[in-house]
C-alpha cells in the first residue's frame, strides 16, 4: 500500500515537472529562437485588423503581430534572466561573507548600504536613473539587478546564518578547512533549498519589473518589438483586435507560472506517508 503511495507521489511529481517544463518552454523557445524564423517585415497593413495573411492580425501601426511576438521575447526574457543571475552574483558573496564573519564591522559595511537601497521603491529608482542615463537593455538588466541585490543578500544571509551556527561549521574550521569549502561547499549547499525557492520568486518579480519598465519605455524604444511594450501600445485596440495584447501577455504569464512550477517540482520532498494499520 505504501509503496504504491510512494510510486504515485513520484509519478505526480514527474508529471508536475513535465507540466512546468512544458509551460515554460513555449515562451522560452519563442523568445530565444523566434527571431531566427521571421521573414521580411513585409508591407504594413491597416492598424488592428484580422486576417489578410496575418495569423494574429496587425498591431497599432499595422505590423504583423505574430512577427512582433517572435521578435519581442528576447529582450524581456534575457533581461530578466540576466538581472536575476546578476543579483545573485552579488548577493551570494555578500550574504555568505556577512553570515560567516565574526567581525561586526565587516557585516555592517556590507549590509547597511544595502538596507538604504532597500528603502527606495524599486520602480522609482529605475525611473529616476532612467531619466538621467536612458539605459539600453543591458543597462536595464543592471538596474533591475541592483534593486534586487538588497533583498536577495538579506535572504542569503538569513539562510546561511542559520547553517553557519551549526557545529558542522566549527568542525570544518577545526579541520583547517578553506573559507571557500566552508562557505560554498557546506553553508551554501545547505541553504540551497531556501535560495532556490527565493530565486523562483525573484525571477517572477524581476520579469514583472522588466515588463513594467519596458511598458514605461525604459530600456526599449516605444515602438520596439517587445512583449511588454506590445501589451502597452496595443491595449487601445483590445476590443477590436485582442490577440496583439492577449498573446504577449499570456506568454509572460506562462514564463512566470512555469518557472514557479518548475522550482516547486524540483524542491518538492517525497511526502511522508503516515503508517497505518492494515
Amino acid at each position: 500500500m505504501t509503496t504504491k503511495a510512494t510510486a504515485r507521489s513520484a509519478r505526480r511529481r514527474r508529471s508536475r515537472f513535465a507540466l512546468g517544463l512544458g509551460i515554460v518552454a513555449v515562451p522560452l523557445v519563442l523568445a530565444l529562437l523566434g527571431p531566427l524564423f521571421t521573414g521580411d517585415p513585409g508591407p504594413r497593413s491597416a492598424s488592428f485588423t484580422l486576417g489578410g495573411g496575418h495569423w494574429l492580425g496587425t498591431d497599432f501601426v499595422g505590423r504583423d503581430v505574430w512577427r512582433q511576438v517572435l521578435h519581442g521575447g528576447r529582450t524581456v526574457v534575457l533581461t530578466a534572466l540576466a538581472a536575476t543571475a546578476l543579483a545573485y552574483l552579488v548577493a551570494l558573496p555578500v550574504g555568505l561573507v556577512s553570515a560567516l564573519t565574526h567581525l561586526r564591522r565587516l557585516e555592517d559595511v556590507l549590509m547597511r548600504p544595502l538596507d538604504v537601497l532597500l528603502a527606495v521603491p524599486s520602480l522609482l529608482l529605475i525611473l529616476l536613473v532612467a531619466s538621467v542615463f536612458a539605459p539600453g537593455a543591458a543597462g536595464l538588466a543592471l538596474l533591475v539587478a541592483l534593486v534586487n541585490v538588497p533583498d536577495a543578500a538579506r535572504i542569503v544571509r538569513a539562510a546561511a546564518g542559520e547553517v553557519a551556527a551549526r557545529p558542522a561549521v566549527e568542525a570544518l574550521r577545526m579541520q583547517g578547512e578553506t573559507w571557500w569549502r566552508i562557505a560554498v561547499g557546506y553553508v551554501g549547499r545547505s541553504s540551497l533549498r531556501t535560495l532556490a525557492a527565493d530565486a523562483g520568486i525573484r525571477l517572477t518579480g524581476v520579469l514583472y519589473l522588466v515588463s513594467t519598465a519596458a511598458f514605461l519605455g525604459v530600456g526599449v524604444a516605444p515602438d520596439a518589438a517587445d512583449w511588454a511594450v506590445m501589451v502597452d501600445r496595443n491595449r487601445t485596440g483590445l476590443l477590436v483586435q485582442p490577440w496583439a495584447v492577449v498573446v504577449p501577455a499570456l506568454l509572460i504569464v506562462a514564463l512566470t507560472t512555469g518557472t514557479n512550477l518548475l522550482f516547486d517540482a524540483a524542491l518538492e520532498k517525497t511526502p511522508r506517508t503516515k503508517g497505518r494499520r492494515p
Partner: peptide
C-alpha cells in the same frame, strides 16, 4: 597549532556535513 588541539563535539550528527 590547530592540529595540536582537536575537539570532538557533543552532537556528532550536527557536526558533520550531511551531504
Amino acid at each position: 597549532r590547530l592540529a595540536a588541539v582537536q575537539y570532538v563535539f557533543q552532537d556528532a550528527r550536527a557536526a558533520f556535513d550531511e551531504h
